[in-house]
């Protein structure tokens, strides 16, 4: 168990392309941090730099009090779970779990103890003598997690571990990972592009865009007070409406803002609402219906109860407190 500190961390590839820059994150011992962002935002690169699979060109990574920039992955006291599991196909589950320990010269009895313990935690006891190819996707994912657990590392690194699973299993495994991490209290760094996964798992979220940190905060903080227009659009489903302030000039108190953000669920239909919306399409989600349309040429979406009456033109109102204002050029939050 250990804290992890990323100080001014950056990565420039030999060709000069910058993947990540100026990342500062302090991860407390036992904390579950999720790195989230669109593809190509540098989140995997960041994780791999912590793991030691990618060289560090700027700044430093500290695990515990030790700077690990030049330390081999095996000696960083971390364990990683890969998206495609990366199980050794020719080894049985037991051998897969034991391989890392064997290489470190752990005594046999200790290996057996840890493997059996991990198998019990993950309920893969009956598969121990099977080969990975005889397992389903969810079972393989458990084995991959087992391989991380048996090492009893200072930190778990997860690289989109649920992306290869079907939707239902993903939700179930998400919960299991959360419970497991609570139980083991191991510092975890988790990469995903799925904002829902990020919201549900994280103690704190790190939203990345273009190799830069946009915001760090608890899921609710990020949801309620997005630090930039990018975060506002990325976190939350359906996505927040981001309107050009010029398209809705008559809204009170928004004169200095470039972009106005309002979540679809914070909008309501009121007869004298300041926003006029021309309805274009309706999506039925069962519990809600999402109504898509335009206001002065800007796309806008509103989430309504499934029994709401919908006419071709709606007048929308909102609570002033739910309004998010952003600078037009920088995207930074201004109120």
């Amino acid at each position: 168990m250990a804290s992890i500190t990323l100080a001014d961390l950056g990565k420039i590839y030999p060709g000069g392309a910058r993947a990540v820059g100026g990342v500062n994150i302090d991860i407390a011992d036992g904390e579950f941090i999720v790195l989230v962002g669109p593809s190509g935002c540098g989140k995997s690169t960041l994780l791999r730099m912590v793991a030691g699979l990618e060289s560090i060109t700027e700044g430093e990574v500290r695990i515990g009090d030790r700077v690990v920039n030049k330390v081999e992955p095996a000696d960083r006291d971390i364990a990683m779970v890969f998206q495609n599991y990366a199980l050794y196909p020719h080894m049985s589950v037991r051998q897969n779990l034991a391989y890392g320990l064997k290489n470190r010269g752990t005594p046999r009895a200790e290996i057996d103890r840890r493997v059996n313990e991990a198998a019990e935690i993950l309920q893969i006891g009956q598969f121990l003598d099977r080969k990975p190819r005889a397992l389903s996707g969810g079972q393989r994912q458990r084995v991959a997690m087992g391989r991380a657990i048996v090492r009893e590392p200072a930190a778990f690194l997860f690289d989109e571990p649920l992306s290869n699973l079907d939707a239902k299993l993903r939700v179930a495994m998400r919960l299991e990972i959360k419970e497991l991490q609570k139980r083991l209290r191991t510092t975890s760094l988790y990469v995903t592009h799925d904002q829902l996964e990020a919201m549900t798992l994280a103690d704190r979220l790190v939203v990345l865009n273009g190799g830069r940190v946009e915001q760090i905060g608890t899921p609710l903080e990020v949801y309620r007070r997005p630090a930039s227009a990018f975060v506002a659009g990325f976190i939350g489903s359906p996505a927040m409406n981001l309107l050009d302030a010029r398209a809705v000039p008559h809204l009170p108190g928004t004169g200095h803002a470039g972009t106005i953000g309002i979540r679809p669920e914070d909008l309501s239909v009121t007869a004298d609402g300041p926003i006029q919306m021309d309805v274009r399409a309706v999506e039925e989600l069962g519990a809600q219906r999402l109504v898509h349309g335009h206001t002065n040429g800007e796309a806008i979406t509103i989430a309504l109860p499934s029994d709401a009456q919908i006419t071709d033109r709606l007048h929308l109102g909102f609570d002033r407190a739910n309004l998010h204002l952003f600078n037009r050029e920088t995207g930074a939050r201004i109120g």
Partner: peptide, 29 residues
Amino acid sequence: MPDELVEAARIDGAGPMKFFRDILLPLSR
């Protein structure tokens, strides 16, 4: 061979020759 396999072996502390013997050879059988 998937890159992740190589990386998993690196994290598992298998040096190059160990990786060759324990993973590459059996997989190219």
